[in-house]
Amino acid sequence: MIFSYELLAQAIVTGILIGGIFALISVGLSMIWGVMRIINFAHGEFLMIGMYIAYFLTAKAGWDPYLTIFITTPMLFLVGALIFQSTIRPILKDPSMNQIMLTLGLSLILQNLALVVFKADVLTSSTAYTRMNFMLGPVVVRGSQLIAFVGSALTAVFLYWFLQKTESGRAIRATAQNREAAALVGVNVRTTYLLAFGIGSATLGVAASLMIPFYYTSPTVGLFFGLIAYVVVVLGGLGNFIGALVAGLIIGLTESVGAAMLPGSLSRVLTYSLFVVVLLFRPQGIFGGKQQ
């Protein structure tokens, strides 16, 4: 390994930018868990669906990748709402093992459906943004990644505002904190679950469009990002909004610095070692104990 400060600086910048996307992918999962105590193991596959939509709109229909946000976001809200209503809602009161099996099953079904429909090809769509880079001292900043970071941050801020300041957002938080009490003040818990699941999924639509200029699309792309999201959510403290954002950045940095400093796939080892160490000493996650 050749060590240089330039390399490290590059890894840190890339890590932060990618970490922003990790954070965005994770907040929805964290919110869904916070509200209804369900971990959606098909979360990564929802992202995959979003990426295929964004890919076809950009590569085949010639759309600007960032314009596809206006399609992917509502589409993912719909996908989430439909899947919730048809499969997850009926098992909300079942033992958690059944729920895990169900969402894991969903993930396999979606992955394999994608394999059948889209084949195993790895698809990339090249746009002007893909090639737009600039230098920050010795560090190359990829324009598409910078846009993705800014877009993720804006989405997170918007979501935070929505949860804190609007009637519906407050109802979502109230339901997460005490479902029965929420029903007793007039909150329709069923609608609130549907809304929370839809919004949690819609964030993946935003993420998919932001990622399409620099990340490939394939039927198994959800595996990696799904796994990252679970790690981030647990690290940040299940159901903790701010925790998920910070943990997203931490994992982004770890992945990126690890990849620059360690040979081959050892960087993955670093990420999951960090995960295991944190869980050993703080099983509630870094920011656990306080829920949003």
Binding site: R173, N178, A181, L184, G186, Q292
Partner: peptide, 22 residues
């Protein structure tokens, strides 16, 4: 309710606002 069943991680003001949700 018995045991109060407040929204613990909301402020006093937000709890009151939730009271007038309907």
């Amino acid at each position: 309710p018995e045991g109060r069943k407040l929204f613990p991680d909301m402020t006093v003001y937000e709890n009151l606002l939730m009271g007038s949700y309907s």
